[in-house]
């Protein structure tokens, strides 16, 4: 088993690491996720050889990533998580009393080439870090990992309303931050 695991690590470790890094953003967490995946793979070796080892390992990794994201969100005080009134008030930063935009949304240019994508990613990371941790984590879970809402609610033990309010706040914050920092070219 250990031999297998070492082979897996050599052959697929880098790919798994990239997969995790793209979703968790943090190198240490990505490394942890790869390690957890290897240990889980050894422990319950259900690999049948029907799918490729990479597909099988990636499936395990996906669960590990969700575990880590869930932990991130759960570490936040629960009162924070369900404080709908507070989130309602903070949205007033974007609208006046009659529901009009205080500042109209600006045009955001699509990053086209590889260099622009790199710049965009680094700005996006900065913007994600500026959000409360639970908001960036739920955003990563939904928009990045494509975990569906029902699953997010189940995983986090929150209501659908809480989930959408958090996603809404995350997206509002991100697009505002991108308006300020993202200038293509």
């Amino acid at each position: 088993m250990t031999n297998n695991a070492n082979d897996w690590l050599n052959e697929h470790g880098d790919y798994l690491y990239r997969f995790a890094l793209a979703r968790l953003r943090d190198p240490h967490q990505a490394e942890d996720a790869v390690q957890e995946t290897m240990l889980a793979a050894i422990k319950n070796n259900s690999f049948e050889g029907e799918s490729s080892a990479r597909t099988w390992l990636t499936g395990i990794l996906k669960h590990k990533i969700i575990d880590l994201q869930r932990k991130l969100i759960r570490e936040q005080p629960i009162s924070d998580l369900v404080d709908l009134d507070a989130s309602e008030t903070s949205m007033d930063d974007f609208f006046d009393k009659s529901g009009h935009w205080l500042e109209k949304p600006q045009f955001l240019e699509m990053p086209e080439n590889a260099l622009q994508q790199k710049q965009f990613l680094s700005i996006l990371n900065t913007c994600l870090d500026k959000l409360p941790a639970k908001l960036s984590a739920i955003f990563m879970m939904r928009d990045v990992h494509e975990s569906d809402n029902e699953n997010i609610c189940k995983e986090l033990n929150i209501t659908a309303t809480n989930a959408w309010v958090m996603l809404y706040r995350a997206r509002m914050g991100l697009r505002k931050c991108l308006e300020i920092h993202w200038i293509a070219g």
Partner: peptide
């Protein structure tokens, strides 16, 4: 309408960046 475009852009770009990161062989353990 612009806000709608912003959110869709965010969504599209993130998916693209993920694909790029996954296939970027220079990123290694």
């Amino acid at each position: 309408t612009r806000f709608n475009q912003q959110l869709h852009l965010l969504n599209t770009v993130i998916k693209r960046i993920i694909k790029t990161t996954e296939s970027d062989n220079t990123i290694q353990l």
